[in-house]
């Protein structure tokens, strides 16, 4: 006869057990994240940026790619930021119609900045998804299968890991940028693929390490002892327990991809400028830095504004990543 020794509810001390809400590890982590002010500020900032990216056509005062018709005659003449007065050449003095001025082609800098958010968001998230998918798949197979397949996959991973990535990007860009494939989405697809092709290696190493340690855990042995099939063990028991570090890794991939795109565009081999007004990704912050650099003396605002935009989105993602790590793994 089993004793009822552990049953709650028989005295006041244990009665409260019944009223406590269920807490999963995820809801615990969310609670910890919410207490992290910097991470929460980052989330809000990134959420606002996402809105800006989605509603860019509504928010941007002008077309980012070409001067609006009334200003056509001013083509070739740039304007300073709104608060700068150019006494020698009044045509160049800032007006509030173009708060951050216009570029040499007559494009509105603020509007370009707003549209640039789109590229940064897309360039951050899509390669992250690619990278994680490849990395998780290879890491799971490698760690779970073990043996020869594991050795083979890991040697391949080592090779990818040791590639000098900037050099790799430059080669890929110069080789493919003029092909139809290289021009898809202004060259964004090529950037996504080349970034993911070299960055999954660290994810797959991380996942494999997690799988190897989880495989030895008693709850996995218990599942095996109960007769759970291997596939279920992998997807029900192992994968959910690797998600926390994967999420953290993902949060750090995003800023790295954003910086990579900016770097490539700055080198002139990133996304290609497009004057087609229907193109959703007409310009990027990296490109603006490149232009801003050549106009640093006459129009410092182009460089400064785009550099601040890149720095702040990167810092926000890094802060979020740190916050996620603290929240998901409270032991550290």
């Amino acid at each position: 006869m089993a004793t009822a020794s552990n049953v709650a509810g028989t005295n006041p001390a244990q009665a409260q057990e019944f009223t406590r809400p269920v807490r999963s590890l995820w809801s615990d982590a969310w609670m910890r994240l919410r207490r992290n002010r910097l991470a929460m500020a980052s989330i809000i900032y990134l959420f606002l940026l996402a809105l800006v990216a989605i509603f860019a056509p509504v928010i941007a005062p002008h077309s980012p790619s070409r001067p609006t018709t009334t200003e056509l005659r001013e083509r070739g003449v740039y304007r300073q930021a709104a608060w700068v007065v150019d006494e020698k050449n009044p045509k160049r003095s800032g007006i509030w119609k173009f708060p951050l001025g216009t570029d040499s082609a007559g494009g509105d800098v603020l509007s370009r900045l707003i549209y640039g958010t789109r590229v940064s968001m897309v360039v951050g998230f899509i390669p992250m998804i690619f990278t994680l998918s490849i990395g998780i798949t290879i890491g799971l197979i490698s760690g779970f299968a073990g043996g020869k397949l594991d050795s083979l996959l890991m040697r391949f991973t080592d090779i990818i890991f040791s590639l000098p990535d900037i050099l790799f990007f430059i080669i890929v860009q110069t080789a493919f940028s003029q092909t139809a494939f290289g021009k898809t989405f202004n060259g964004l697809l090529l950037i996504f693929l080349s970034f993911s092709a070299v960055n999954w290696a660290s994810v797959s190493r991380l996942v494999r390490g997690q799988v190897l340690s989880l495989k030895e855990k008693e709850f996995v042995e218990a599942a095996e002892a109960v007769g759970v099939r291997r596939g279920s063990i992998l997807f029900r028991h192992i994968l959910p327990n690797t998600l926390a570090p994967i999420i953290v890794a993902g949060a750090f991939i995003v800023p790295s991809a954003i910086v990579t795109e900016a770097t490539l565009s700055f080198l002139g081999i990133g996304i290609q400028p497009d004057t087609n007004p229907n193109n959703p990704f007409p310009t990027s912050w990296g490109q603006m830095i490149l232009e801003g650099k050549s106009a640093i003396d006459s129009q410092p605002w182009i460089l400064i504004a785009s550099a601040i935009a890149i720095a702040s989105i990167t810092i926000a993602f890094v802060a979020l990543g740190d916050g996620l790590r603290d929240a998901l793994d409270p032991r550290q």
């Binding site: 999963s24 709850f219 028991h237």
Partner: peptide, 8 residues
């Protein structure tokens, strides 16, 4: 260690 922390 013997119970999967992500399962009810």
């Amino acid at each position: 260690a013997s119970l999967n922390p992500r399962m009810t």
